[in-house]
Amino acid sequence: MGIYEILKSAHSGWRYLVIILLLVAFINALMGYLGRKPYTEGNRKLNVFTLISAHIQLVLGLLLYFMRDWYKGDMSVAVQRYWKMEHIAMMLVAIILITVGNAKSKRMDSALMKHRKIFVYFGLGLLLITGAIFGMIHADPTRHLFAM
C-alpha cells in the first residue's frame, strides 16, 4: 500500500469525524440559540475541535488533489470535472465558512450571538458539504452515500 492509498483511506475515514462533529456543533448551537443558553467552555472546545478536524480533512484532500493530478482533468467528463472543480471548490468554501464562523463567534460579547454565528456559519458549511456529497454520487455512479 502506497502513500496515496494511505492518504485516501485517511481522507475517506476522517470525513465521518468531520461530519459528526459539524452536525453536533450545529445542533448544539441551534439549541443554545433557541434555548438562550450560556456559551460554555465546552461549546468553545466543540467548535474548535470541529474547526481543526475540518482543516485536517482539507490538508488530506489537498495532498490527494495534487498527488493525483486532478487539476489536469478533462472538464467535459462529469467525473473529472467534479473532482477537478466542484468538489474542491465546495469543500474550500465550506471550510472557509466554518473558519469564519468560529472566528466571528469569538468576537461576539453575548452568548446568544456566539451560538447564532456558529449556527449560521457551521450550518452553511454543513449544507455545502452535504451538497458536495450528493454531487459526488450524481457525478460518479460507482460511489454511494457511505462508500469509502
Rank of each mutant, 00 (worst) to 15 (best):
S105K: 05
L30R: 11
M1H: 11
N43W: 04
G13K: 08
Y16A: 08
L63H: 06
F26P: 10
K114M: 11
M91I: 11
V48L: 15
I96H: 00
I118L: 04
L21N: 04
G2S: 02
L145Q: 05
R36K: 15
S105M: 10
D69S: 11
Q80W: 14
M108K: 07
I27M: 08
H138D: 02
L97T: 01
F146Y: 12
A139L: 12
N47R: 08
R116P: 00
I133G: 04
G13A: 06
S110P: 15
A25Y: 09
A111W: 08
M31D: 11
M113H: 11
L51H: 10
A94T: 11
R68Q: 06
L60E: 07
A29R: 13
S110K: 10
H138W: 02
G2Q: 00
I133L: 00
M75K: 13
P38Q: 14
L60V: 13
K106W: 00
K45M: 09
M1W: 09
L58V: 07
L17H: 07
E41S: 14
I118M: 06
P141S: 05
F122T: 11
T99L: 08
I137V: 15
K114Y: 06
G42Q: 09
A139Q: 06
H144C: 02
F146D: 06
A29E: 15
W83Y: 11
Q80S: 08
K84W: 08
S105Y: 03
N28K: 13
A132L: 07
F26R: 02
G42M: 08
K104W: 02
W14Y: 12
D74G: 14
G73H: 14
S12P: 05
I133S: 01
P141D: 01
I133V: 09
N102T: 07
M31Q: 13
T142H: 01
G42V: 15
I52P: 04
I96Q: 03
I6R: 07
A111I: 07
L62G: 10
